[in-house]
Amino acid sequence: MATKSDGPSNSKYITMVSSDGFEFVVIREASLISPTIKAMLRNNFSEAKTGRCVFPDISGLVLEKVVEYLYYYHKNVNVPYVPDMEIPVELCLVLLEAADYFQLDSVTVGTAFRSMGDTLKF
């Protein structure tokens, strides 16, 4: 990230805000796992300037789980045996939507491979 300017744009943390006003302060590095957040924090978007990402469609309950996942993933990068994170059954479908929104589908797959999949797909 930018190193010159001071203030929130290069802080180690960012803030994620849910639709019902819950705020989660997350390590920037962990949050960048999500391509969606990564894109928000790039360039001159207001999120990049303030370090504050507001998600008006996502409730605090779901966002909490997403943040938990971001940390869980961050902690376990390249660990060979990772126990699965517990997903509450009642949140399963909303979390699926959120996973789609944050593009947390196949984080580790190389981009070249993915584009290959697209070209050769049925």
């Binding site: 993933y73 660990v79 996973a99 944050f102 196949s106």
Partner: peptide, 11 residues
């Protein structure tokens, strides 16, 4: 893939 499964896979 080494590391955690994707959130979508878990869900």
């Amino acid at each position: 893939h080494p590391g955690a499964k994707s959130l979508m896979t878990l869900c």
